[in-house]
Design a protein around this nucleic acid. Structure first.
Length: 554
DNA sequence: CTAGGGTTAG
């Protein structure tokens, strides 16, 4: 290669832009960006192809910033960008999630006469999606005179990645209705991902059917999304079936399984999957360890969790960051080691978002163990930094209530009234066939609430037998909206979600609670009783198939 | 000669 380069140089062919471009392209394909760039610098008259292939090379090597610099340099030269250049630059903006620059490039496209180019517009849709500007993505999509599978997929992904799974599915439906192209593996993977985020098992199974009919079930990425979808929709046995069919599963389906098992409270299974993965020489990554630590936390395996935390870096070279330490704080907190948890939390460097998670985690652990002292400190941090203010007020107030300190409960509640802090009530929901039934925390219209609640208690005991570490089920004493001291039924906490996790779900019925759907082989009877109650008391009461967050408050 | 879309956490 280098000798070819040398002889080309000697023969003066570098003056020939075509030949030099070919050679540079060879370097780019070999991932030798250094040589490619050197050759580019030696060229007398680099043209649009020279610029674009080098830029594309940098994008593919994960260095989109250098590609952006080259684009700038190009704009300062006499060479004009073409549709290939724009597609590459816009792609760089999506990777960087740089909306400002993306908009500038878009404006550039508009005046360049390339606004009708299919590839350029598809990359714009993708870029706006990745920059979280779904509306603008849709604007570009709507303005396109001609679309193909890629443009439709970009739009689906834009919705799916911006918490608008329903819209993603609508776009998919529209695509199928038009009967132009058939969906391919990219589109199906995105659609299944949307189903997963919505916890919509039935739609997910339909999509799985399409996958099989179209022959994409052996595609690893599609299979990975199916594994993830089934764990998130609560069908572990399907999840496992799909997983077993993957001959060489990557870290991603393994991680989905590990996280899934952790969420079901099956800590041992989760850790077993991790061991299996290591034995198969599949390298775990940072997300895998979130799952592993999560498993330890929810199953009370504190020492094992700490061991994994230490081995992360020592054995696998993965540096623990805020998300891992938040898991560990949760783990220590749940098991009652609150002082250690607090010390650890104070030592972690976090940005605002990670901080909200970290302190929120510690706050609920403080409440769990009735540690008013820590709850006070932590709520102060949250409220002062204007993070999760309403939630902090409520949890702190509940901690006081647990300690019987009604004076502070009252004063907090009047603080909230005075400052207008309002907490959206938590909710759970049950999907039966194509209908969704929503339970709001403190909803007194649940006529047989006490009956449901006593079932919850039974389930909770079952849960604890399996090693779950968490709060008690059932009653909280303070509802933000109502007067203090009032006992209400709450259906919105994680512990209730886990309680539901001990329920086996009959065919065609999905239970989804706070996005976590859990099940196991026991407690079939209990589920039947609950679903009877639901059928009797809630059918017709809440019929929206929208996720509760999208609904108007009842 | 150069270009666009898919999977794992909280």
């Amino acid at each position: 290669m280098t000798s070819t380069h040398a002889s080309v140089m000697k023969s003066g062919f570098l003056n020939d832009t075509f030949t030099a471009n070919h050679l540079m392209n060879c370097y780019v394909r070999l991932k030798e960006t250094l040589n490619a760039h050197q050759l580019f610098d030696e060229m007398l008259e680099p043209n649009v192809v020279s610029y674009t292939s080098l830029m594309a090379g940098y994008v593919n090597m994960g260095q989109p910033k250098i590609a952006m610099c080259l684009f700038q340099k190009m704009n300062g030269s006499l060479v004009s960008p073409n549709e290939f250049t724009f597609a590459t630059v816009i792609n760089a903006c999506s990777i960087l999630a740089d909306l400002r620059t993306g908009k500038k490039v878009h404006a550039h496209v508009e005046v360049s006469g390339l606004r009708d180019n299919l590839v350029v517009c598809s990359s714009l849709v993708d870029m706006y999606g990745k920059c979280n500007d779904v509306d603008r993505a849709r604007q570009v999509f709507d303005s396109m005179g001609c679309r193909n599978v890629v443009s439709w997929t970009s739009m689906i992904v834009a919705y799916a990645q911006n918490a608008q799974g329903d819209e993603a599915l609508n776009i998919f439906r529209e695509f199928n209705y038009l009967l132009g192209d058939r969906p391919n593996q990219f589109m199906l993977a995105s659609v299944i991902n949307a189903c997963a985020s919505l916890g919509r098992l039935v739609s997910g199974k339909v999509a799985h059917g399409v996958v099989i009919r179209c022959g994409y079930d052996s595609n690893d990425v599609v299979a990975s999304t199916l594994v993830d979808m089934y764990t998130k929709c609560g069908d572990v046995s399907y999840s496992d079936k799909v997983f077993q069919r993957i001959s060489k599963p990557s870290v991603i389906p393994y991680t989905s399984m590990i996280v899934g098992a952790a969420k079901y409270g099956l800590g041992r299974l989760s850790l077993g999957l991790f061991e299996e993965m290591i034995a198969r020489r599949i390298k775990p990554n940072d997300v895998t360890f979130v799952g592993v630590l999560h498993a330890c936390s929810h199953s009370g395996l504190v020492d094992e969790g700490l061991k994994h935390l230490n081995s992360m870096y020592e054995i696998y070279g993965i540096k623990a960051d805020a998300k891992h330490y938040t898991c560990v704080v949760d783990m220590l907190g749940r098991s009652g080691r609150l002082d250690e948890a607090y010390q650890l939390a104070k030592s972690i460097q976090v940005d605002a978002n990670a901080g909200a998670l970290l302190w929120g985690t510690l706050l609920s652990a403080s409440r769990l163990h009735g540690r008013v002292d820590i709850a006070v400190e932590v709520s102060k941090k949250l409220i002062e930094s204007n993070q999760q203010v309403a939630g902090a007020y409520v949890t702190l107030s509940n901690t006081y209530a647990l300690a019987g300190d009604w004076e502070n409960v009252h004063s907090l509640r009047s603080d909230m009234k005075r400052t207008g802090v309002y907490k959206e009530p938590g909710c759970s929901w049950v999907e039966i066939k194509d209908k969704t039934y929503v339970f709001y925390a403190g909803d007194k219209s649940i006529e047989r609430g006490s009956e449901v609640w006593s079932l919850m208690r039974k389930l909770e005991q079952e849960m604890k037998k399996r090693g779950y570490v968490g709060e008690n089920t059932g009653l909280v004493f303070v509802d933000v909206e109502e007067e203090a001291k009032e006992e209400i039924l709450t259906m919105h906490s994680e512990r209730l979600a886990l309680a539901f996790g001990l329920i086996s779900i009959p065919k065609g019925i999905t239970i989804r609670i706070m996005k976590n759907l859990r099940m196991c082989k026991d407690c079939h009877e209990a589920f039947k009783q609950i679903s009877d109650i639901v059928e009797r008391d809630f059918v017709g009461a809440a019929t929206s198939s929208q996720p509760p967050t999208m609904r108007q408050r009842a």
